[in-house]
Structure formats: C-alpha cells, structure tokens
C-alpha cells in the first residue's frame, strides 16, 4: 500500500503537476499571443466600413474595447469559466463557442472515427496479404492520397459533387429554418455533412491505413503469431484478436493526437464548406480581431490537446499492460 502511494506520488502526481503547469502556460499564451496580431478590432471593423469615424469617435470606441485588465484578471475570469463578451456580437463568448462546438464535434468526430475504423481494418487486411496486388495497390494509392492536402480534396469534391452534379449542398450544416419533421431534419444535416466529411475522411484515412499496415507487419512476424498459426486458430481470429490488438497502440496515439487538434484542424474544411464550426468561428474572429473569441478558442483548443495527451497516458496502460508494469 505504501509502495503504491509512493509510486503515485513519484509518477502520477508528477504528471498532474506537469499538466497543471502546462495548462497555466497555455493560458498565458492564449492571453498574450493574440495581442501580437497587427491591427485591432476598431480598425478591422470600422476602418473600411460604411461608417466613417471622427478621431473622437474612434478613440471612444478604442477605449471601450480596450478595457483589458492584465493577465491576473484574465486568469481569474478563466478560472470562473467567464470568457468575456465577443466584440463583434456583444454576446458571451461561451455561448458562441458552445453553439459552434457541436458542429465541429459532429464533423471531426465522425471523420476521425470512420477514418480510423476503415483505415484500421484496411491496414490489417493489407498487412495480412503482404506483397499481394491488393496490398501493393492500396499502399501506392494511399501514399499518393496522403500527399494531397485536404483543401485540394475539398475543392475538387465541391466542384464535382456540389457545383457540377449538384448532388450535395455546397455550404452550411442544414437548410436554414426549413420546416421539417425530426427525421427529415436529421437527413438534411447528413446531406450537408457529406462533402466536408468525405474531405476529412480522404485526408485521414490514408495515414491510418499506412500506420496500421506498418505496425501490423511488425507484429505478424512475431513468434506468438507463428504459434497461433501452428495451433490452427482461424486466420480472422489471429488477425484481429492476437495481432491487431498489439498493432493498435500507434493508431490510438494518432487518433488521440488528431482528436486533440480537432478544433483547429477543422478550420480549412469548415471554411471552404462554410460549415458553422469552431474553425469558422476562429477564422472570423481573427479577421475581425475579436480578441475575446480568439483567446477563448486558442485556450480551449490548447487545453483539449493537453487533456487528450494526459488521457492518452492512461489509455496506453489499458491497451498495453506492459506500459503500466514498466512504470
């Protein structure tokens, strides 16, 4: 018992302290970095607007929007989950963030889960059929696909399926204010989701496939797989129960890291598909120099990254007991 406590203090407590210090640093960076953006809200909003400000009007607005009271005040507000008010919308930043977050989770979450599932299965199957035409074609194809940036895939999909064929809507997450029943509404959301989702799946799937395949190739050469084969176990069981579980670790790491960049990672795809997620919120906030919104999104995305990395530590122990015992 005493030994377990000492182990916790030495290892886990150290991890928690490191996590807290990193969170504090992230909070400071989220406070400080957006302030280095050239220009400010008043110039970005009124500088080229229909309204032409006199010097007095301009300084009054600058005084109103420049009421920041230092990092200590910011930190205390963050601790109280008070993210302030958006300059553009004059509404609480939290309301803006949480109205955009579900769309990002729907898009990015679906893309990650689907690309991981099919990437994993395809990777396992390709590794098992090493040197077959299927494996060679998949590896070649996926290597090419991995090199194509999502902005390129996204624009091509939009051009073909939205502009030319008109099968899918080019923008948005649902038909605005359409008077529909629940099922039709769900279908409408799915229809709008299709293009950005496919763009992301095409971006993430090749990486998952290649990683699983490589990892799996190493595993299936191990002695215990030979033993399993010698025992006459079904091939499917050897692939997925014996081999794939041990090939899972790098895939989970990649999944976690990708998930951690969920908020900012969606920026490009959300922008080209006019999808109303956190990426779009951040993009618009930067364009308008809406400092409270930029700070909140940067802070939340960095804390999510930190939390996921922290959680991954424990997930590893669950997936691979060797990590736990090694500590």
């Amino acid at each position: 018992m005493a030994s377990a406590s000492r182990k916790f203090i030495n290892n886990d407590l150290g991890l928690v302290v490191t996590f807290c210090l990193a969170a504090l640093l992230m909070t400071f960076l989220s406070y400080g970095l957006p302030r280095f953006l050239p220009g400010d809200f008043v110039t970005a909003t009124y500088g080229a607007s229909q309204v032409t400000l006199t010097a007095e009007q301009e300084s009054a607005l600058r005084a109103y929007y420049g009421q920041g009271r230092g990092f200590g005040h910011y930190l205390s507000r963050v601790a109280r989950f008070d993210w302030g008010y958006s300059y553009v919308f004059e509404t609480p930043v939290s309301a803006l963030f949480f109205s955009a977050l579900p769309w990002t989770i729907l898009l990015m979450g679906s893309a990650h889960v689907i690309s991981m599932a099919i990437g994993f299965v395809a990777g396992v199957e390709a590794a098992w059929r090493r040197n077959s035409p299927f494996e060679k074609a998949m590896v070649g194809g996926m290597t090419v696909l991995e090199g194509i940036p999502e902005i390129c895939t996204g624009v091509i999909l939009l051009f073909v399926f939205a502009l030319q064929l008109q099968w899918f809507p080019a923008a948005g997450a649902e038909t605005a204010y359409a008077e529909k029943d629940f099922l039709a509404h769900v279908a409408d959301v799915g229809h709008h989701l299709a293009l950005p989702l496919c763009t992301l799946i095409l971006a993430y799937f090749p990486g998952n496939f290649l990683l699983t395949r490589n990892s799996m190739i190493m595993v299936i050469m191990a002695d215990y797989i030979k033993t399993a084969r010698a025992k006459g176990l079904p091939a499917l069981r050897i692939r997925y129960v014996h081999a794939a579980r041990n090939a899972l670790l790098p895939v989970v790491t990649r999944f976690g890291m990708r998930l951690a960049f969920m908020i900012t990672g969606a920026l490009v795809v959300e922008k080209i598909n006019a999808y109303p997620g956190v990426g779009t919120l951040l993009y618009n906030a930067i364009a308008a120099r809406d400092l409270p919104v930029i700070q909140a999104v940067v802070l939340m995305s960095s804390l999510i990254i930190l939390t996921i990395f922290f959680a991954l530590e424990f997930v590893y122990r669950f997936i691979d007991p060797r990590i736990h015992h090694a500590r």
Binding site: I114, A117, I118, V121, W167, F168, P169, T175, A178, K180, A184, A187, D188, G190, H191, L193, A194, L197, L236, R237, R239, Y240, V241
Partner: peptide, 29 residues
Amino acid sequence: MPNRFLRFLFYGMLILCGFLIFPSGISAQ
C-alpha cells in the same frame, strides 16, 4: 467475434453512405 465485427463495420458503413446520399432528393426547397 472478428466476423461479427467486420459484418457490423460493413453494414454500418453502408447505412452511413445511404444516410449521406439519400436526402439529396428530399432536401428542403
């Protein structure tokens, strides 16, 4: 178990594809 998993994955993808494509005809005007 692996067979069941693969079957589940296959049908899941099929339903998802249908879900994404089907509404093109009933999109609100």
